[in-house]
Design a protein around this nucleic acid. Structure first.
Length: 321
DNA sequence: GGTCGTCAAGGGGTG
DNA sequence: CACCCCTTGACGACC
């Protein structure tokens, strides 16, 4: 028996005018004559993004959804070089605390997926420094929400640079330059071009990092490894985590665009995975990465309802018998 | 009111 | 090395 809890990413296809990712480009910022006024504008945008995030969380509660990935674009230009003196957290404190209490009150799981230019295994030191800076922003956001930052940020391993082994070892070397509190915030995910489940598992076991298994990525990119043989080890990377095992679920757009995410999740593909791991963990949290976001979650739940080895708990959670 | 090029940020692949 | 692609949502210039 395993409890399965579904979540979705950042934005809603059903709630209107609720973007948590509004932005201002650096070009626009520079065009403003009055720098202080331009910074106030950035702050207004960030606050609006947080207000919409709060609306989305309330909407999630209404729809029985308790697992959600925040946008990583909440604060435009937060870590841009030209804005280094800006205390972007100051105007957001109140709203962040409010969001945090809401999350805790309703026992929701929330996390982040920083953008792809956060690369911890880069051979370029500036890239590493900027990556840590960006992760620090995520850390401060979680602290502002008064949430335990442990295992709230999922990352890819990074670049392969045509040498998997060296690139994995560079991850290990660079890892020691990452401050401890930020290390503890991180989870790693197998990707679809550079690092397989085996590669990622090597780092996770060596460095004590939880592994977020992406089933679609694994089908798109693997060597000889069978994921079923590795599953127990994947689960073991979560031993020290206060949170349930997490995975990503999505479906290929088409045969020739296999890596691209489809609008919805293929329920049969999902159950091929679930039936294999059923009973191996008390609970698993599945993050849906589909173009139709929350809409694909609701559609999938409707399809799941009809299956025989399923007992519904609520609109986004079920027991797999 | 709708469409399309552009945007801070990295890396992969091709020629 | 030059160039375009990936991926993402939103902005804003333009029609």
């Amino acid at each position: 028996m395993t409890i399965v809890r579904m979540g979705y990413v950042a934005m809603s296809m059903e709630l209107k005018n609720a973007s948590p990712s509004k932005t201002m480009t650096f070009a626009q910022f520079q065009k403003q004559e009055d720098r202080e006024a331009a910074i106030r504008k950035l702050e207004r945008i960030a606050l609006e993004n947080l207000e919409n995030t709060h609306r989305l969380l309330k909407n999630n509660l209404f729809n029985d959804v308790h697992f959600y990935r925040f946008s990583s674009k909440l604060i435009p230009l937060a870590t841009h070089d030209e804005l280094s003196g800006w205390d972007y957290m100051r105007p957001l404190k109140g709203k962040l605390a409010e969001i945090g209490s809401f999350v805790k009150e309703h026992k929701m799981r929330v996390d982040f997926h920083p953008d792809h230019f956060v690369v911890l295994n880069s051979p370029n030191n500036d890239v590493l420094i900027n990556s840590v800076k960006n992760l620090k922003m995520h850390y401060l956001l979680l602290k502002g929400m008064k949430l335990d930052p442990n295992h709230r940020c999922v990352l890819h391993v990074g670049g392969n640079y045509k040498d998997t082994e060296k690139s994995l070892e560079r991850f290990v070397t660079n890892w020691s330059d990452v401050p401890r509190p930020i290390q503890q915030m991180i989870m790693l995910e197998n990707d679809d071009t550079s690092f397989t489940l085996d590669d990622t598992l090597y780092l996770c076991l060596k460095l004590g990092i939880p592994l977020v298994f992406d089933y679609h990525h694994h089908l798109a990119f693997h060597r000889e490894e069978q994921w079923e043989d590795k599953w127990d080890q994947v689960v073991s990377t979560w031993k020290t985590s206060p949170l349930p095992v997490k995975m990503h679920i999505s479906s290929p757009k088409s045969e020739d665009k296999f890596r691209h995410h489809a609008d919805y999740v293929d329920v049969d593909m999902f159950f091929r995975f679930l039936n294999e791991i059923k009973g191996s963990v008390p609970q698993i949290d599945c993050m849906i990465e589909a173009k139709q976001k929350d809409k694909s979650l609701f559609t999938l739940m409707n399809e799941i309802k009809g299956r025989e080895n399923v007992e519904m708990i609520d609109g986004s959670t079920f027991t797999l018998l």
